[in-house]
Nucleic acid binder design. Structure first.
Length: 118
RNA sequence: AAGGUGAAGCGAUCUGUCGCGCAGCCAAAACUGUGAGGAAAGUCCGGACAGGACAGGGCACCCCGCUGCGGAAAGCGCAGAAGGGAGCAAUCUUUUGGAGGCCGUAACAGAGAAUAACCGCCAGAUAACAUUAUUUGGCAAGGGUGAAAACGCGGGGUAAGAGCCCACGACCAUCGGCAGCGAUGUCCUUGGGGUACGGCACCGGGGCCUGCAAAACCAAAUAUACCGGAAAGAAACGCCCCUGUGGUUGUUUCAAAGAGUUGCCCGCUCUUUUCCGGGGGGUAGGUCGCGAAGAUAAAUGACAGAUUUAAAAACAGAAACCGGCUUACGGCUUCACCUUUUAU
RNA sequence: GGUGGGUUCGUAUAACGGUUAGUACUCAGGAUUUUCAUUCCUGCAAUAGGAGUUCGAUUCUCCUACCCACUA
């Protein structure tokens, strides 16, 4: 695995489209770690795809939601090599009512990726 | 120097590493360029744009209503006029009006809330006979109530009183002069005397309805208007096994119904059922609307260093565009003005 | 994104701009009963927040906050 490719997050590695997301929600496995909840499902592609989500119920201001989504993407980008060679679709959902720091989110994301790599 | 009032403005900058959206070459990589706000917010107004409706005109309905200028328009901006309120002041804030016809309301209190007689004042008559009572009439000067009580004060006048009359004022309307583009102000002439609020009618101006999830283009699956072609059904008795409103089944019998075409028959056509092919509108989806930020689960971040700073910390993130309004906001700069104190 | 509607005791609801904001259930106290339930009496308890119009605002106007519905 190339070290440059390990820390990028191009558009094709993001899950989009109503059908794919519905399929993930319908057939994925759920779990939660720390301030995050995740839902994963293996896919048939050569790379993994992710979705990040912050509920509007917890944070009314768009600025705070954008901040948390950026932190979650950043944490996944810097630590996605932990996932190894088993591609899957992952949904990250933020469930804490408080704004967490980047280190805390990174810790949760790394725990989730280690679990999913097994 | 301290406090305050008004107006305008800033909303950190630079460098390096990693990373993201879009564009630049047909695709990828690499490279280059570019990438949130003063409010992007609330959606409170208006516009532009788009579709639908619509010959033209009127009524109804809705909105606005002091003046001038700006503006495409606006519950818009600037400057002003009149009245009220806050402040020592700088200054801030709020209201109306055009015309005055009709109607409604004014709780409680109070005699009375809009054709005012409870107490009271005065005159006449009767009973009674110094006085009082009853009754008829006149009177808005005094009382107290209330948010609001029928111009103020002085004099004349009268039975008692009253703008009833007079002088001086206040208010409303008005011919004329002067100032002003104008609202209006001021001087003068003449006239007036039941308040406040709201609605209707009248006058002037404006307004069709819906909204980018609008609209336009391409267009699966399913159902289907329409067109072309082909076929037809029912009953009885058997046969089979999965025993059912069963069937890629056999034999026999009758060859369907309605309408039209001449009264009848044949023939022909159409409808009712099934299949095949074509085909229109149109859904999912995609493109466009869409921009030198601009996507379609949605891009601006992370780390390190330097400068100003006590500390990079406030409110807050474009989803079609434009002009306003309103609301949120740490820290700070500039200008003008006011008050207080000190010094010259 | 766009367009509408709403917020009244703990709950469900009413109000012409005008008494101390009414009614039912709930809660508290008392009476009735041997006791409990039922019933009766009494009480506590609210106009989302802030300005304005008015003599006076739940009501009329504006701003803010929150909730609900419709629209692909």
């Amino acid at each position: 695995m190339l070290p440059e490719a390990a820390s990028t997050l191009p558009k094709k590695e993001r899950l989009n489209g109503k059908k794919d997301i519905s399929a993930l929600l319908a057939g994925g496995k759920w779990g939660s770690v720390g301030c995050l909840r995740y839902c994963s499902k293996p896919n048939a592609l050569e790379y993994s795809r992710i979705v990040v989500s912050v509920p509007k119920r917890l944070f009314k201001r768009a600025v705070k939601r954008n901040l948390l989504k950026r932190r979650m993407r950043e944490a996944y980008r810097t630590s996605k090599q932990l996932l190894g060679a088993c591609p899957q679709d992952i949904l990250f959902q933020y469930i804490s009512p408080e704004i967490a720091e980047l280190q805390e989110i990174r810790l949760s994301v790394e725990t989730i990726l280690k679990k999913l790599a097994k």
